[in-house]
């Protein structure tokens, strides 16, 4: 393969991933509204298109045609920069998540991941930490008390749960002995899923993922009864849409990461023993990846509409006094497991 073929293949993969991501985000907004309607025994959006399926596009166009307001008290450069950071971070994390096993198409051997870097997990951690800046800038630069409180709460919450997230990931690295997401998925063959081998780490990671994405029950940064809109109180038009899209894109990333690290990625247990053809096996594996991500997205939405919000001191004590020690226990557990069973 010469360099142009590699670049063209990469561009096609990037295009497919970006389009898929946008569709996932658009339809998770739609399903958020539909599922909340089912939970509350309502109908939900059903006017735009068949069953309201065109609703996300109507929302986007509505926001596109709205006036953009920057308050005179705001710090203009940072106020404009914040949604860029939030959206940019949410999009660029997808580069390292493998969606399926390597496939052969038109004579080319193609990895179903944009870039198989050997430090993929560090890349994801670094970018998700950058996400804190978007929200903190938004909160500080708006020149509004609600925004400031929301931004500060959010940064404290995100850094608190980042610690337990990092410690849970250390447990996964102990099993896979690699930072590359592709290798981590390959290490979870058969029933060796990390969620089964280290249930404590799985729970701490999922809870931290909820806190990192600012989803209910951890949505204190935008707790609407006390802080109006939190850090995006002063945002309107497409900048608001930027934060909105970033929140759902982060949710999709969190689901993809949970699947990659703990639920075996594209692996289906014992599928090679069924004696199916190569093409069919590959298709089933890719489909299982999307099915797992979809199930987790549903779980995110389900939890949001079932569980009330934490108080701030409960949130902090859950992060530091429960999740952090549990993550430490998980590391020792995994280390002992490897030592005893020689995995």
């Amino acid at each position: 393969m010469n360099i142009w073929e590699i670049i063209i293949i990469s561009l096609i993969k990037i295009l497919i991933i970006v389009v898929m991501l946008l569709l996932t985000v658009a339809y998770s907004v739609y399903f958020e509204r539909k599922i909340s309607a089912w939970v509350q025994n309502r109908v939900g959006p059903n006017r735009v298109g068949w069953l309201g399926l065109l609703q996300p596009f109507a929302d986007v166009f509505k926001l596109l045609f709205k006036e953009d307001i920057i308050p005179t008290a705001a710090n203009k450069p940072l106020h404009t920069l914040a949604p860029f950071i939030a959206l940019f971070v949410a999009f660029s994390t997808y580069a390292v998540i493998p969606l399926g096993p390597p496939v052969e198409l038109f004579g080319y051997k193609i990895n179903l991941v944009v870039a198989d870097v050997n430090i993929g997990i560090l890349y994801v951690l670094a970018l998700t930490s950058l996400g804190v800046y978007g929200i903190t800038f938004a909160g500080w630069s708006s020149g509004s008390k609600y925004s400031l409180l929301g931004g500060i709460r959010s940064s404290a919450q995100m850094i608190s749960y980042e610690v337990s997230m990092g410690f849970s990931i250390a447990g996964v690295l102990l099993m896979s002995q690699s930072l590359s997401p592709v290798k981590i998925v390959e290490a979870q063959h058969g029933w060796m899923w990390n969620a089964i081998l280290q249930p404590i780490g799985f729970i701490t990671f999922v809870v931290s993922a909820f806190a990192e994405t600012n989803r209910l029950p951890f949505d204190l940064p935008e707790a609407e009864p006390e802080l109006v809109g939190g850090y995006h109180t002063e945002y309107s038009s497409f900048k608001f849409a930027g934060f909105f899209l970033a929140e759902y894109a982060n949710m999709a990333i969190a689901s993809a990461l949970i699947v990659t690290l703990y639920l075996g990625g594209w692996q289906v247990p014992y599928i090679e023993k069924l004696g199916l053809s190569y093409t069919l096996t590959t298709i089933i594996q890719i489909a299982s990846m999307f099915l797992k991500i979809g199930a987790l997205l549903f779980f995110f939405i389900w939890v949001r509409w079932s569980i009330p919000r934490f108080r701030y001191d409960q949130l902090m004590s859950l992060g530091w006094k429960v999740m952090f020690p549990l993550a430490l226990v998980n590391i020792i557990w995994v280390a002992a497991l490897i030592m005893i069973f020689n995995l």
Binding site: I7, S10, I14, V18
Partner: peptide, 14 residues
């Protein structure tokens, strides 16, 4: 083109 080059393209496009 290394794998990091691909990441660079992705970041640029994003």
């Amino acid at each position: 083109l290394t794998e990091f080059g691909k990441i660079f393209i992705f970041i640029l496009l994003a």
